[in-house]
């Protein structure tokens, strides 16, 4: 059955409309969870507010379980689902730079747009920074191209990498996440802080 648009069960014209509706859901949930506040987001790294950890991991796990169950019931063809390809060196380096950007700027791109939508000026400045950062990358791309393409493994899945089934992998991630949630809750008790 699914995914509906790639299989042309729903016309491709609808795809952008679907994107818009899904975006509304995404933005709404992010804002309701408190991701529009940089101080809440940064709280994870100081232990006083671990909402990022909780929302992020619960979200990833829910979608992961959803995909696996949908596939099990024959509702979705996993071979048509985009799995982002692994380029190990650029993924690590890019991740490190993004991590620095996260703790310095207090947002990530999705949350900054969400925060800007409710009037946070720091988020708008952050978005301006993203525009510049992408511009710098694009201009310097020819120098980094080799590095950008290095260590290509294609759309590799962790379950295949470890040689276990997707379901077992999901269970391991869930267990790890629940342990982290518990640690996060302990941290919040240890370094309590008023919410803003």
């Amino acid at each position: 059955m699914g995914p509906l648009v790639p299989q042309e069960i729903i016309g491709a014209d609808w795809n952008l409309f679907i994107a818009f509706v899904i975006g509304i859901g995404f933005g709404f949930v992010l804002e309701q969870a408190g991701f529009s506040s940089s101080r809440k987001l940064a709280g994870l790294f100081y232990g006083y507010d671990t909402v990022v950890l909780k929302v992020f991991f619960t979200g990833a796990i829910t979608a992961m379980l959803g995909l696996l169950f949908f596939s099990l019931f024959g509702w979705i063809d996993l071979s048509l689902i985009y799995v982002n390809p692994t380029f190990i060196w650029s993924a690590i380096t890019g991740g490190v730079i993004m991590g620095a950007g996260f703790i310095i700027g207090g947002f990530c791109p999705g949350t900054s747009v969400c925060a800007a939508a409710i009037g946070k000026i720091d988020a708008m400045v952050f978005i301006g920074g993203i525009l510049l950062g992408i511009f710098f990358f694009a201009e310097g791309f020819s120098f980094m191209k080799d590095f950008y393409m290095a260590g290509a493994y294609g759309p590799l899945k962790v379950s295949d990498f470890f040689g276990i089934s997707g379901g077992v992998m999901a269970l391991l991630v869930i267990i790890a996440a629940l342990v982290m949630f518990k640690l996060g809750e302990l941290a919040e008790k240890k370094w309590p802080r008023e919410e803003y």
């Binding site: 791109p109 952050f126 920074g129 950062g133 990358f137």
Partner: peptide, 26 residues
């Protein structure tokens, strides 16, 4: 700091082929 963080995040997201939502969450 927000501007500086944005620049880093923008640059890193392109190098890493996606940001927290596009690459990490998805």
């Amino acid at each position: 700091f927000a501007a500086a963080g944005g620049i880093l995040f923008g640059f890193g997201s392109q190098l890493g082929r996606g940001c927290t939502s596009g690459s990490a969450l998805t």
